[in-house]
Nucleic acid binder design. Structure first.
Lengths: 226, 226
DNA sequence: CGGCATCCGGGAAGATACTG
DNA sequence: CAGTATCTTCCCGGATGCCG
């Protein structure tokens, strides 16, 4: 019957005027914030999102995308021809959630239970750079690199004590780094020597090796809160 | 059988090295962040928490407290005699999550779906002040008030363009305000005139009325993201 | 293949009653 | 007052299948 359609209330809300509580109404469901994370560097397709979020099932991803769209956090867009492919992208307001993601990441890195050796998506690595970048260590540095992480290319650079992290390849770069997010995390946060990774074939660098070495020195993990 | 005790694995984690994902492992479960919110201004008892979080059930609150304690976000403490009462309080690290809560609140206030007329806890109101305080409007202001919100007293003040929000009564104050969190939210964010609220008996002010009026002018809701 | 509906099993959340 | 026990309901996760 159609009656059950009408009765489909029970949108489980906290019913709390507090902004924090409302934020949880908007993106407190399981996986929602990680979907937002994956869109933080630009539009993605359904399949890309799924591949970047190991463990999410297709129907849950569909539900989250619907909910986030209904709440105005993201929108569905069709890429211009000839691609003509459907993608999901954050609204301007959704994009403004970035500092929250970064702050959450910085805070949780101090957890004794945090395991940096787990899998990592390319976008998550880029955002982690923003969380742990230390401008004071970057004085006078000016570098631009291309990171090839799987099928995707990213631009990473430093100029005027500011960090640049974008999706897509840069026009010019000092070095091209081909590797995986996990390997780069080991290099930058785990202080694994670059030569070791190259020896294992886990990382290939073409161009100025010093650029990557310098870059890796700009990040510091916050102390554990034991 | 005892076998089922052994099989109780399945601690549902995102298994993601990303700090944001780990933050969700730590406090992404339903109600967890609101429990943290209620502890942000100091230790509380089980019953206080329950009363401040309408909708949470006792067993869920128990589970959240256990989980947050296991993760090092909060600890159980016994108040010194003669109180000798058990309370929950945030660890130093847990306290550091405050900017996250405030940022979430500020962001979500821009949601078209946000309804400021819903119920509000006293602690949530205090934290909302921190989210929406505009130092530029507070030049030269110096005031201290006591807010009596139900059984609890709070100190609210401004000095040197900085906002003070604490639990407990101040030693000296310019005014004593007795009301509810919802009424004060209407005054400060809804711009309901003070005289109207007094006329309804929803708010009683003893002392310098101008202190409260000046205070109410220091906050601005961020624009909607329609 | 990408996107979405449907069915099902397990587990977490919600409501209520009960206990020290 | 501070939880525990129990039952129900709903959400999540996985599999399958439809359709453009």
């Amino acid at each position: 019957m159609e009656l059950e359609k009408i009765t489909k209330r029970s949108y489980r809300s906290y019913d709390d005027a507090c902004g924090t509580a409302h934020a949880l109404d908007l993106l407190g469901e399981r996986w929602a914030l990680l979907v937002v994370r994956e869109l933080m560097l630009g539009p993605r397709r359904f399949g890309d999102l799924r591949a970047s979020l190991p463990g999410i099932s297709a129907n849950v991803l569909t539900q989250r995308l619907e909910g986030l769209e209904a709440n105005g956090v993201l929108r569905r867009t069709k890429l211009p021809p000839p691609a003509s492919v459907q993608v999901y992208e954050l609204t301007e307001w959704g994009l403004e959630a970035e500092p929250i993601l970064v702050a959450l990441g910085r805070w949780a890195t101090r957890s004794p239970r945090h395991d940096p050796a787990l899998p990592l998506s390319a976008v998550a690595l880029m955002l982690s750079f923003r969380a742990k970048f230390e401008p004071d260590k970057s004085g006078g540095l000016d570098l631009a690199m291309e990171f090839r992480l799987g099928p995707e290319a990213f631009t990473v650079g430093v100029r005027d004590r500011r960090l640049i992290t974008e999706r897509g390849a840069p026009l010019r770069s000092d070095a091209l780094v081909t590797s995986t997010p996990e390997t780069l995390a080991g290099l930058i946060y785990g202080k694994v020597p670059l030569a070791t990774l190259e020896g294992q074939g886990a990382l290939v660098i073409d161009g100025d090796r010093a650029a990557l070495e310098n870059f890796a020195g700009l990040f510091e993990l916050p102390p554990k809160a034991d």
